[in-house]
Simulated assay, not measured.
Amino acid sequence: MSVPKFATPPPPSFHTVLKTRINDYFKQQGKPSTGNFRLYSKAMFLVVGFLALYVHVIFFTPSAGWAIFECLLLSLFTSAIGFNIMHDGAHGSFSSKPWVNTIAASSLNFLGANTFMWKMKHNVIHHAYTNIDGIDDDLDAKPFLRLCETQKHYKFHKYQHLYFWFAYSLLYLFWIFVSDYKKYFSKKVGDIPLKKMTANDHLTFWGFKLLHICLFVVIPIAMVGVGPWAIGFVSYALFAGFVLSIVFQLAHTVEHTHFPVPNAETNKIDDEWAIHQLKTTANFATKNRLACWFMGGLNFQVEHHLFPKISHIHYPRINKIITATCKEFDVQYIEYKKVKDAVISHVSYLKQLSRPTLVHAH
């Protein structure tokens, strides 16, 4: 499937007006659109907390119950580092200094995945072609889950709204031990070719994969034995997988988001890119301070998709500009007030797609 093109509206387009207003906001405030002390202090807390938990559970292993609890807590720190440090770093919004962004993004390498693959899958493909089946790799959970109506229906999908949590739990294990390697050896993300890897990209890929195996497999087994390591590591990886999955799914695969199909003849999407982002993306729990802190603004997914190079710490402020502009242009802005509301909508959507009939036509 070749990548589609977006419509070009007559000027002034919604996107042009919005960009001008957001740029004006930062000029008036006299501050950069990247991270600040609030973000850096949170990053420091997350890194120190992660290292302290890792050292304690491996080298000063407590009783079984406490050890499992600490492994689950380590999952939350892993997810939070991904949401807050890696994500902003990979988008170049963590800092105004490129080398700092590179270090922040590299936290993903230490956690077992690969920054090069992530940037291609997420920054290049997902952000440009959100919710377009066959291109957006985030929709590809085949055959286990059916995430949009254009995907093939299997009989076992009848129960996907019941077993999805288990499938989501497998994400992290699958990501670090299967899908990165699949992308590396096939030189593709789905059907989209990877950009050419440099010698440094290859060294980074293999070097950090080996480092991760040493840190999370070899050393723990040497310290606590195979059995305790297996219980701890599987608990850690399954919980991290679920948390990472559910946060990203709540932003795109819910009842009110769209899954546009390009015109068969022209290979064009009906909307301009910015409006496409608003139709395919949802916010949730934006007034929940704990959710905002933990998820690194990923619950402000609309703001993130429209302005991925702006750090998440600015999303609550630019949210007001975006919602006002949406009203002015009569563009729908999808938002769920609570995490619970978004989860209910996501489960309801999975249940709709558990039937072979077309019920979510957009």
Rank of each mutant, 00 (worst) to 15 (best):
P10V: 01
P11W: 03
P11H: 06
P12G: 03
F14M: 02
I22L: 04
S33P: 00
N36R: 08
Y40S: 02
A43E: 07
V47W: 12
F50W: 15
I58M: 05
P62H: 07
W66V: 11
W66Q: 09
C71E: 05
S75K: 05
S75N: 12
F77M: 14
I81Q: 07
G89A: 09
A90M: 15
A90L: 09
H91C: 14
S93T: 15
W99Q: 04
V100E: 02
I103N: 06
S107Y: 06
N109M: 10
F110V: 07
G112T: 06
A113I: 02
F116Q: 03
F116A: 04
H127E: 10
H127R: 09
I132K: 11
G134I: 08
I135H: 01
D140W: 11
F144G: 00
K155L: 06
H157G: 02
K158T: 05
Y159C: 04
Y159D: 10
H161C: 00
L162V: 03
A167K: 00
L173G: 05
W175Q: 12
I176C: 00
V178G: 13
V178I: 15
S179E: 13
Y181W: 15
K187S: 07
K187G: 12
K188Q: 15
K188L: 14
I192L: 05
K196F: 02
K196L: 11
N200K: 14
L203F: 12
F205S: 14
F208Q: 03
L210I: 14
I219R: 04
I221W: 12
I221K: 07
A222N: 10
M223Y: 03
M223Q: 14
V226L: 14
G227Y: 13
P228D: 10
W229L: 11
G232P: 04
V234A: 12
L238Q: 03
L244S: 00
Q249T: 02
A251R: 06
H258D: 14
F259H: 15
V261S: 05
N263R: 05
N267R: 06
D271Y: 07
E272Q: 05
W273A: 13
I275P: 02
H276C: 04
K279S: 03
T281L: 06
K287L: 06
A291R: 04
C292R: 05
M295G: 00
G297H: 04
L298P: 02
Q301H: 15
H304N: 13
H304D: 14
I310A: 10
H312L: 08
Y315I: 12
R317Y: 06
R317E: 14
I321D: 11
A324T: 02
K327V: 00
F329H: 11
D330M: 01
D330P: 00
Q332N: 13
Y336M: 09
V343T: 10
H346K: 08
V347Q: 09
Y349G: 00
Q352E: 03
L358D: 09
V359C: 07
H362E: 15
